[in-house]
Amino acid sequence: MKQMQEEHFDPMSHLVPISLYVTIWAALMVFTGITVFAATVELGVFNIVVALLIATIKGTLVVLFFMHLRYSTKLTMVTVVAAIFFLIILFSLSMTDYLTRAWSTSLR
């Protein structure tokens, strides 16, 4: 715990080259293009899967580089992972209802 307190986040100690930011920006633009393109292709239920997948990758890039998570303390990383963990709880426990709701109609 003491070690955690001593870690100190100093944004100036992690100078990121402008080129990296530009690369990330370009990647985000490419993914946006793919999103637009994928929306025009008929993939059935996979349309939404593809859209969400691309959005997740883009979000991850923004959080890691633009929001400096990659260079942050472990405590900050734990905080972000905690948020994802609770998002998984929201999805998975809601799914216990959605995936099994049809089973119960056979009981009625």
């Binding site: 209802d97 959605y98 009981l107």
Partner: peptide, 22 residues
């Protein structure tokens, strides 16, 4: 506290199996 929310929905028509878990 994050794992119990559907106990507000027991009679709302959710799956009985999910209701058991919650």
């Amino acid at each position: 506290g994050f794992l119990v929310w559907a106990h507000h929905m027991f009679v709302a028509g959710i799956s009985v199996y999910a209701a058991l878990v919650f």
